[in-house]
Design a protein around this nucleic acid. Structure first.
Lengths: 216, 216
DNA sequence: GTAAATTGCCTAAAAATCTTAGGCAAATAT
DNA sequence: ATATTTGCCTAAGATTTTTAGGCAATTTAC
């Protein structure tokens, strides 16, 4: 019988396209088999199971996103860099909604550790080099930016801001202004200001990061 | 045959508990039937289908969240109110992860309009009364807070900040400090500052809101 | 209190998906 | 040209979703 030339890679890529078309949680081994005009069981030689397929799509999305982020960040600093990375996430989600959803797929710790998640955290941290933040504030800021990027994009994609004025593009621009202002004028810790409490926030930290599917 | 006393309400409540135990997307009519020791088909008299069940769980979660928010906001203003509402979301997600996930369930526009989503938007807007923001900045800020709350909670729940220093509680407190500072010192629009551009950001807006499952 | 109407849970059954086991033929290596 | 590997297949069991129609328990009407 004619061989179609199935590969794990081709399946994952087709799965990512399928996700963009019908939504990540509508991605099914059966539908994928249908698209390759192949029996369902045939896929199980290339992919362990449905979960494995979804995990691989998630890893692909994380890589693509990190690649785009790295390209956007090259040669930029400060607010310019901040806006560039933010736009990468927003644009990617618009162009590839299924893949973006995949990037949020819950990975087991081992897989997450081996994913591109760490690159995302590093990129956010790189942006903060353009602002005068020291640890632990830098980590707090990394987490804040991560929360904001993810939250905004997922709300906008989910229609959370639909059809109401002002339009989302204006909001987006003003939000980036606001975040830039916040980072340039990051408030001192109340504990540090009071300079009285013992359990103050001066513990130096090393490996805390932020980004999709990684520990921040 | 003995009647168990199924009700739409009881099913939805049990579904919410099931979601908290096994995850919202593991909620299945079959499992629910099993828990009531009843045949699957019996549920279809009380719930239209699987999607209907999930929608009802989502609406329940949105109500519960709005109720908690309203209670927390009563008698508070400014940063106190900001922290109170933020903590409501974070605590609810921790206590009821499945319900919180349900609250993110994509509702069709009609259902979303009839949901408690609007209350969430109003609560966020109410907080901003403690800050000197006028439209359209107020709407931008509503959207920023909504993005941040949702993004932070979903990242923390997803393990995005796991096991790295500083701990998330410290980050949480410092983030609320930062957001408070940002709202007290909201940057003027670059367009307004320059006071030159024609398509400036001075359009008055009326019904723009933010909150889960509602238009912001 | 009994008869009639309603309602609740049931059996039965079709369609879809996921997954495993084992087989034959096509590609590849010797 | 033969031997080995590998790719896709058939077959089959388990789950889930959903619809249709039936009988008995409950509620309503007299």
């Amino acid at each position: 019988m004619a061989r179609v030339g199935l590969t794990t890679e081709r399946l994952v890529l087709a799965g990512a396209e399928l996700a963009d078309e019908v939504g990540f949680d509508q991605v099914t081994v059966s539908e994928l088999a249908r698209r390759f005009d192949v029996k369902v069981a045939s896929l199980y030689s290339h992919v362990k199971n449905s979960q494995d397929l979804k995990t691989r799509i998630a890893l692909l999305a994380l890589e693509e996103l990190a690649d785009r982020g790295a390209a956007a960040l090259a040669g930029r600093a400060g607010k310019d860099a901040l806006a560039a990375l933010a736009n990468v996430y927003r644009d990617y989600a618009r162009e590839h909604p299924g893949r973006y959803a995949a990037a949020q797929f819950r990975l087991d710790p081992a897989t997450a550790a081996a994913s591109a998640g760490g690159r995302h955290a590093q990129m956010t941290r790189a942006i903060l080099r353009g602002y005068a933040l020291t640890e632990p504030d830098q980590t707090h800021a990394v987490r804040l930016l991560g929360s904001f990027f993810h939250g905004y994009v997922s709300l906008e994609m989910g229609g959370g801001f639909s059809h109401s004025a002002p339009d989302t593009q204006e909001t987006w621009v003003r939000m980036l202004d606001a975040l830039d202002a916040l980072l340039r004028n990051w408030p001192a810790s109340a504990a540090a200001t009071a300079a009285t409490t013992a359990t103050a926030a001066t513990t130096a930290t090393t490996g805390a990061e932020t980004g999709p599917a990684s520990a921040h």
